[in-house]
Amino acid sequence: MPSKDDPASMGADMLVISVQPVPTIGLRANLIGLKDLYSQLMKTAFAAMLQYRAALVIWMISQVLEPVIYLIVWTSVTQASGGKVGGYTRSDFAAYFLVLMLVNHLTYTWIMYEYDYRVRQGSLSASLLRPIHPIHSDIADNLSSKIVSTPGLLLVSIVLAVIFRPTIHILPWATIAAVPAIVLAFLVRFLIEWMLALVAFWTTRVNAINQMYFVVLLFLSGQIAPLSLYPRVVQVVASVLPFRWMVSFPVELILGNLTPHQALIGFAAQAGWLAAALFCVRATWRAGVRQYSAVGA
């Protein structure tokens, strides 16, 4: 058992203090503090990011390429089978994959690669000494990178829209509902992937685990095909697990594929997974920090 003045267990205690403001909204002072904290963290993140513009562009290319490839695959399939596949026409697929690209971009994280590095190099030690939980600076990093890259991606999607000619039937209620759906999807995906990143505390083979996660995510979050094109069993699995709610659900909402009733079920699922993920992140973080022994500390 670690003693009380062991840095690792201090880190674990800090979590209790610092993560509190997030779930217990209502404490005004805490919220203002959090706002200041985030504006400062994001300023730092912006400054760092501007040094890595090329990395941002590369990352965007892979974000764009994959949905475009699958869009072309499905376009080719619709042409071969007389105009319609599983209720989707060629322009429906275009709409699906372009919206998917945007939602995937907005909910994407790269935190697994970071944590592996932080734990192996021991650079996590510094952030453990700060009086705030490290997850806040990770969220700020992610948000500021998206503020920078989203205009670029919107531009790309306009160009792609001109090329692939999507059709979307916009339902006002569904479009409005998509905003909280994307926020919830981001939070669920961020927390789950952040938790997965913590695996780095226990093993140095994180790449294999990450890749396994990405394969499942690719299929079950609707990035290869709309989930409705899968066999019934796979659809059920994708809905029971968090994957559908992390990417596919907001896409389905925006495209007007869901009834209000189905949308409510979706929000309930997102809220449930958010609660579960918050709980698991706290537990994993406590256990992980105890496990952590930085080289050179």
């Binding site: 080719s76 394969v215 899968y230």
Partner: peptide, 18 residues
Amino acid sequence: VTALGSLAVVFSYTDTLA
């Protein structure tokens, strides 16, 4: 698995691709 899985999904809807 990823490569063959995506082929399986695609070819459940068509016989030929291009």
